[in-house]
Amino acid sequence: MISFILMVNKQGQTRLSSYYEWLDMQERVALESEIIRKCMSRSELQCSFVQYRGYKVIYRRYASLFFIVGTKTDVDLRKSIASSSAKKKPSSSSSDSGGGGGGGKQGRYDKAYVENHENELGLLEFIHCLVETMDRWAGSICELDIMYQLEQVHFLLDEMVMNGYVVETNKSNILRPIDLMDRESKKNEGMFR
């Protein structure tokens, strides 16, 4: 699954961030600034993948804007599953069944069994799909469009990704509902911005 999607400009200012697993505010700020620094230090010819703190970062640059997708690396995912099932135990114990069972047995998972299935090249393609969709939506999208219509971009992103999984990649399927909803909203416009 995708752990986060970022759009960061060349100055290192985040223009959009969407996390599909919870991170503290300080962690987010640190993560974003370090990742963008890593991405900016790389040339066009170098590959689009960077390993960073247990994340496999896939990035692509469009003009002055970096589109960054992070996903967990295989090994760390194994750990996180083990720890999340451990964490989950107290919360699910309030309901009747035992949920995930003991979490401390991560040694038992074979690496072939619990791995991150994300395909780096596929994610790269997905970034392109996202950009094309945004392009069609706003007609040649630019950094400021994203900044001033932050919530709109989020709506668009929510049509494409949910909980870190791809929902839809067909541009018209994504944009049609967005248009309809926007029209719906315009009816009682007024204080929206």
């Binding site: 599953i81 099932s85 995930g100 069972g101 038992r108 998972y109 069994y113 299935h117 999984y165």
Partner: peptide, 13 residues
């Protein structure tokens, strides 16, 4: 895919 991964984890646990 998700269900299979969960199921397998459950099984091995």
């Amino acid at each position: 895919t998700q269900v299979l991964v969960m199921d397998r984890k459950e099984y091995f646990e």
